[in-house]
Design a protein around this nucleic acid. Sequence first.
DNA 1: TAAATATTAAGAATCATTATCATTTATTGA
DNA 2: TCAATAAATGATAATGATTCTTAATATTTA
Lengths: 150, 150
Amino acid sequence: MAKKQLTELLRQEGLSITSPRLNVLAILDQSDGPLSVENIVEHSTTQIPLSTVYRVVADLLDAKIVRTFSSPDKKLLVELTRSTSGHHHHLYCQSCEKVFDIDLDTKMERLIENVIKDVSDSHGMRVYDHSFEIYGTCDRGGHHLKSDQD
Amino acid sequence: MAKKQLTELLRQEGLSITSPRLNVLAILDQSDGPLSVENIVEHSTTQIPLSTVYRVVADLLDAKIVRTFSSPDKKLLVELTRSTSGHHHHLYCQSCEKVFDIDLDTKMERLIENVIKDVSDSHGMRVYDHSFEIYGTCDRGGHHLKSDQD
DNA sequence: TAAATATTAAGAATCATTATCATTTATTGA
DNA sequence: TCAATAAATGATAATGATTCTTAATATTTA
């Protein structure tokens, strides 16, 4: 996506145009999946403090330009809202520490909605979100895991 | 559950019998749902440091006496393995900060297994776990619910 | 019971994240 | 355009959750 479009994204939400914001947006835009704050810093060609990234991400989240969630090791992950269509779920690779978006087919999504309705009715709760996550390893010979056998 | 049984639980796994371990087990046993480490300390009649609870929980986890997972605000939650049957999922209440176990029916579990197989096949990954979580509020005006025993 | 071993308590260290604040940058309007 | 004003940044301190360290204590073993 062109820099002009990223600028427009900020403008539409009433956020001022600053280089850290454009920088973070460009990095997220170029990524094929969600990134951690640390990842964003690593991908940046210019120096950018973690604190700035956290603040920028919080602002973009308020403006609903990005969506955030947590990895299994409790780190903040970020992705552009517009890069994915509607609700989606995640696949985490333990060995390469990557995250992938997964899309469920309509039938499955509808089944999940039914389950949510049943559960929320029986518990008398108003549901605002749900998540479905899969954890695995990608079995690439290169990386070896820390041994944690039992 | 009687203290004797909790003792036996530790013995069976080759863990030595200590009062912090029995204490934590008793608290988890009396709870109707998963507890955070902080919750465990709050429920304890005797003084017990957070660090001790973390260590005890880690030992119990190694021995598979407890299961752990994270709340939306990234805190460690703990529950007795034996208190739930097989794989299960969670419902988080944002307003009262409680967690409930939810059980899916067999059909739904099987559908989820199918989805996992599709996703893992297409990504070439070996899947070791999955989670399905629902987030909601219980509409009690932001007040806390009952606390059984303090 | 005594020696050997494992566990605890207390606090320091660490990791991710958030807050503070002086300085810099963006926006506004003459 | 250019200063005035408002907002955002960068460096660093503070925080909250969790882990680590170590001397002291409890548990297990012989």
